[in-house]
Simulated scan of single mutants.
Amino acid sequence: MPRPLSLVAAPTIALLGLAAVPAVGSAAAITPSAPCYSSLYQPGNTQYQPITGTISGGTPGGRFQIYGVGGKAGSQVGNFDAAGNATYSIGGSYSTAGIYPSAGRAVKLEVTEFLPGGSPITGSADIKTATIAVDVSTKPSNPRKKRLVRASATIFAGQKVYGFIVRGTKSTKVLKRFEIGTGNVCGYVSRKAVVAPSNYRTGSYTLYVNAGKKLDKSKALGSGFRIRRTSF
């Protein structure tokens, strides 16, 4: 007597169903070494801080790729060690919001593992990327009016940042000092302030920005400007 078709087909369907599911044996955890990474714009030679950190909980000995989603950062391919851990250092360019001071642009990192039956995404983490820069608005033109001052650098993160005005570029005599704000995770600060010294003269000046109440040119960002009779 022939066996019912349903009894023969059931095991075949079950086996096909199992084979169609990629083997996922881990849940990787990405731990970035910092919440924000910066680039320094230079014509023809922009420098990028490597995006570094660790990955844990991967498949022991397994191969992986870590990358910035949507091409907002580069990628690295490697292998987990016998405990399922790895380090990463993603070099090259990454997406920022231009060459001016930035509060930080969100970038998502993901880990894909190459496993039997498929290549699933097993972990993700969020970071930010920003620029190392300082900028003073050119408006309004009147030196006695407030204008927007912005700066960003990861060394300013969580620090109280000040602006310092000196004559020319070589002088160390501070003609004016003002607080700009406390840096966010990317060291971004902004404030509207009168940049010109109280008893200003026409000529060249430099705005230096650094953490702390004392000017330290070795750790400061600078932006030059001129004061003319009617504007600067």
Rank of each mutant, 00 (worst) to 15 (best):
G58E: 05
D81Y: 12
G58P: 04
G68N: 09
G58C: 07
G68T: 00
V69T: 06
G62I: 05
Q76A: 08
K72D: 14
S56D: 00
Q65W: 07
S75Y: 14
A73S: 13
V69K: 02
D81R: 08
I66H: 14
A83K: 04
G57H: 01
G70R: 08
S75N: 13
Y67T: 05
G70H: 07
G61E: 15
A83R: 03
G62W: 09
I55N: 02
I66Q: 15
V69C: 04
V77S: 11
F80C: 09
I55H: 04
Y67N: 04
T54A: 10
I66T: 12
K72W: 11
V69P: 00
G57E: 06
I55V: 14
G68A: 05
G70Q: 09
G68E: 09
P60I: 13
N79Q: 12
G62C: 03
G74A: 11
A82N: 07
T54L: 08
G74N: 03
F64K: 06
G58V: 03
G68Q: 10
G57A: 00
N79E: 12
G61H: 13
T59R: 10
K72Y: 15
G57I: 01
P60K: 09
G71V: 06
Q76W: 04
A83M: 07
G68V: 05
G78E: 02
G61Y: 15
G57N: 06
I66D: 15
N79A: 13
I66C: 15
I55M: 13
G57L: 02
G62R: 05
A82K: 04
S75V: 00
T59G: 02
G70T: 08
G68S: 06
G74L: 11
F80G: 10
S56I: 03
Q65N: 13
Q65D: 14
G62P: 11
G62H: 07
N79L: 13
S56H: 02
T54P: 11
G70I: 07
I55G: 04
A82C: 05
G71P: 00
G71D: 04
F80M: 07
P60R: 05
S56F: 05
G58Q: 06
A73H: 12
Y67M: 10
D81G: 13
I66Y: 11
A82I: 05
G57F: 03
S56M: 01
G70P: 11
T59L: 10
N79S: 12
D81T: 09
G74H: 06
G68C: 05
A73C: 12
T54Q: 03
Q65Y: 07
T59E: 14
G68L: 03
N79V: 09
V77L: 07
T59K: 10
A83P: 01
G74Q: 09
A83T: 10
G78L: 02
G74W: 09
T54F: 03
F80V: 02
G58K: 01
G62A: 10
G71E: 02
S75L: 12
G68K: 06
F80R: 01
F80H: 05
P60V: 14
V69I: 10
P60T: 13
I66A: 15
T59M: 09
V69Y: 10
